[in-house]
Amino acid sequence: MSNHDVAIIGAGPAGMTAAIYAARANLNVVLIEKLAPGGQIVNTYEIQNYTGMGTINGAELAIKMFEHTQELGVQFEYATVIGISTTGPVKKLICEEGLFYEAKAVIIATGTEPGMLNVPGESSFAGTSISWCAICDGPRYRNKKIIVIGGGNSAVEEGIYLASMAEEVVIVTLFNLTADPIACRKLRALSNVKIYEYYEILEFLGEGKFIGLKAKSTQTSEEMIIKADGVFEYIGIKPISKAFIDLDIVDDHGYIEADTTMSTKIPGIFAAGDVVARKFLRQVITACSDGAIAARSAAKYMEKLNEI
């Protein structure tokens, strides 16, 4: 059992910034991450709007942020937090690995993950024929046929990238293309791209081996089967907050409710980054801002505790 001033759950930009600010406030910090530093930015090829960085690869920015935390002596631990007990004088973090961490304050910065459709057949092919990372899994579909689900920025940008290697890319989206107009024009101009707008996915098809999708037009109710070798899903994001539902700080969509000081309604529990509800903008820079504010609020909370 480890005892800390502040435990930060999640080492994306929000969590790492919170760790930097908390460490600089002379707090004993533990930063807990289930996979690797960086969160979603590791999958971002280029970040072009993080002040002072010009254009930087997402993973390279994540490594810079992580090294910054290490220069300040932040304790980094690999664990998956599955619950927080708030019954005692300190918060107890319960981890899947059987580990426990104790801290006076907790900052939740678990971020988001790609959403899924939850239609028949999807879970059978997730991680094999269904992928969320075009740059990682695109090479296996060289000269093959791919379906991209979604019509937002990620779907359109990755669709353009995948069209550079696949024989054919079929975009299927529930609405029309909502991505940046320049990117949409570029996608529509590609000769090996077909776009089906206003189509709902009904089922992923194949027994053992993926063979295609069944989709239905929301305008005509016409159903069709689209054959393909693989699928890339870009249908939005969902918050990673299952571990905190029992705390009653999560809204109906799974996001954590926090005020402008990043405080939740439970004293000593703060939230930062993409997992926070009602955010106008979810960007690296806003996640970092949240992290800084959450750490400052945690430091103030510690000051009050020490006065008692």
Binding site: A36, I63, C133, C136
Partner: peptide
């Protein structure tokens, strides 16, 4: 690995 892939860069670091 591939030089163009973010998760590859992070994995190399780890």
């Amino acid at each position: 690995y591939s030089k163009t892939c973010g998760p590859c860069k992070m994995l190399s670091y780890v």
